[in-house]
Design a protein around this nucleic acid. Structure first.
Lengths: 193, 193
DNA sequence: GTCTATATAGTGATAGAC
DNA sequence: GTCTATCACTATATAGAC
């Protein structure tokens, strides 16, 4: 895969983002140098600045892209019974996060490396996602299907619990992801019923 | 609090650890320089090396100290009913973690900045703590008080859920920590019963 | 025990050649 | 679009004076 000087803008841009995602997740934003990212892509450090104005923007774009993907991928259907909506949320959250561990890891670990402005924008998106789950719990409580003391707290508790799967689940272990999902759904269902 | 050259070993050692804890939690291990820690303590950078052989040891000692404190502070009593043991675990975990947010944050966020050897030692301690909860769930399941499909998964789910409180709870908010604890206990109780 | 000074290496970002 | 070269800083860690 040796390459020499030339024009490769179409592929280099995405490659920069992929390399940064992988390296930030592995070593942490602060510990990864622009030179390391460039080496992973196969260019010199100076060339990266064709694709990003600076290192901070690289981090923010990765996190914003992840949150945007998350919001776009989850389609709640307010017409369905609350319990079914909640079950769909649980399965969606586990599978979506499992499919992109690096982006998830960065989204949770690198918040403090964002500038205050960028942090506020990411937090808005995260809040939007939480609100989707809270709406499900609220509707279920109003309908008398769920029994939760506080929908906001239940929302945060459920999301923390589900996201935790990413920290330990590895393919090929004792249980499949679908079996894990079934057990988490059972625990969530009981917790709110 | 201006200070000059002199002998202060009795107080400087702990101050170095406290400064490192605070700064690592705020900015991340990789982003915090030895000079920044020294400035926080009120000495020059070179003086830190009287108290730690290197930056890595400083991080490891903080994390090991936290995990040791955690294991020493939680006293399970196998003679009690499983449900009471679980309730005590939930309350203990929430309150212990709330009392030392910086140490908790570091223990979860800086694992990847440990050398492989140090990482393995911290993971052993973490595993030990998880085993305490798993034992409670196991005993309760055997006694027919709990109903959990898999005690290991329930253990990880409960710990992730409880630790999540630290990411959002702030004193003086809508609910007190004891009210939060009561709600989490209710959710945990239902999830395993 | 702490200081100053320094060795050695790496950092993000830019300028200008090609 | 990428390269080389470089600027201005900062990093960890050590040596030797006090």
């Amino acid at each position: 895969m040796a390459r020499t000087t030339g024009s490769h803008s179409d592929i280099t841009g995405p490659k920069v983002r992929e390399a940064a995602l992988r390296l930030f997740a592995k070593g942490g934003y602060a510990a990864v140098s622009m030179r390391a990212i460039a080496a992973e892509v196969g260019v010199q450090a100076g060339a990266l600045y064709t694709y990003t104005p600076d290192k901070q923007s690289l981090l923010f774009d990765l996190m914003e892209g992840h949150m945007t993907d998350l919001l776009a991928a989850f389609c709640d259907e307010a017409g369905l019974p609350a319990q079914e909506r909640l079950q769909r949320f649980v399965a969606f959250h586990i599978h979506f996060h499992h499919a992109r561990p690096d982006a998830v890891f960065i989204a949770y670990m690198e918040l403090r490396n964002l500038t205050p402005e960028n942090f506020a924008r990411i937090e808005m998106l995260r809040r939007e996602y939480e609100d989707r789950l809270q709406a499900i719990l609220h509707d279920g409580a109003v309908a008398g299907v769920f029994n939760v003391a506080d929908t906001k707290i239940a929302t945060l508790a459920i999301i923390a619990m589900l996201t935790g799967v990413n920290t330990w689940f590895r393919e090929g272990g004792r249980l499949s992801l679908d079996e894990i999902t079934a057990q988490y759904w059972e625990m969530v269902r009981r917790a709110v019923t």
